[in-house]
């Protein structure tokens, strides 16, 4: 039996580039995880559907612009509708302190990583929180 942590890395929303998401994706791969990379401009529906089909442990959202306060709740809602609340949702990007607090307290995001968080920290967090 050889279990591997599977992570979906997505870049929702309409804005710009996915450089950050790609760096994270590669970093997680180098830490031995299977990373399903879905690219730019994902709708919450696409993110959740892909996460279900790929049976991932974690959804990692790369956030650049301000839509996160609606995005995270929407994704959680869709996960619930599909009986998939066991999939953890985390995010990274520029999110103000008070909104991080609100998202975590609301249970919309398990963890949020601010820019500059070392990759090892993210890897470590995932390894600790996914029951293998």
């Amino acid at each position: 039996m050889s279990r591997k942590i599977r992570v979906l890395v997505a870049k929702p929303g309409l804005d710009g580039h996915d450089r950050g998401a790609r760096v994270i994706a590669r970093g997680l791969r180098d830490a031995g995880m299977e990373v399903i990379y879905t690219g730019l401009h994902q709708t919450p529906e696409q993110v959740v559907e892909a996460a279900i089909q790929e049976d991932v442990d974690v959804i990692g959202l790369s956030i650049l612009s301000g839509a996160h306060m609606t995005l995270f709740p929407r994704i959680c809602e869709l996960l619930k509708e599909n009986n998939a609340e066991d999939i953890m949702v985390v995010g990274g990007g520029t999110i103000p302190e008070d909104e991080i607090k609100a998202l975590k307290e609301g249970g919309w995001a398990k963890e949020l990583f601010t820019p500059g968080t070392p990759l090892e920290k993210i890897v470590e967090w995932i390894q600790e929180n996914v029951r293998v």
Binding site: E34, I36, Q42, Q46, A50
Partner: peptide, 20 residues
């Protein structure tokens, strides 16, 4: 990857319109 045992699976990028 033979080194890390991890993998970057990116084929879905081209199949997005069928996701839902």
């Amino acid at each position: 990857s033979p080194f890390s045992g991890g993998a970057l699976l990116g084929d879905r990028i081209r199949m997005q319109e069928h996701t839902t």
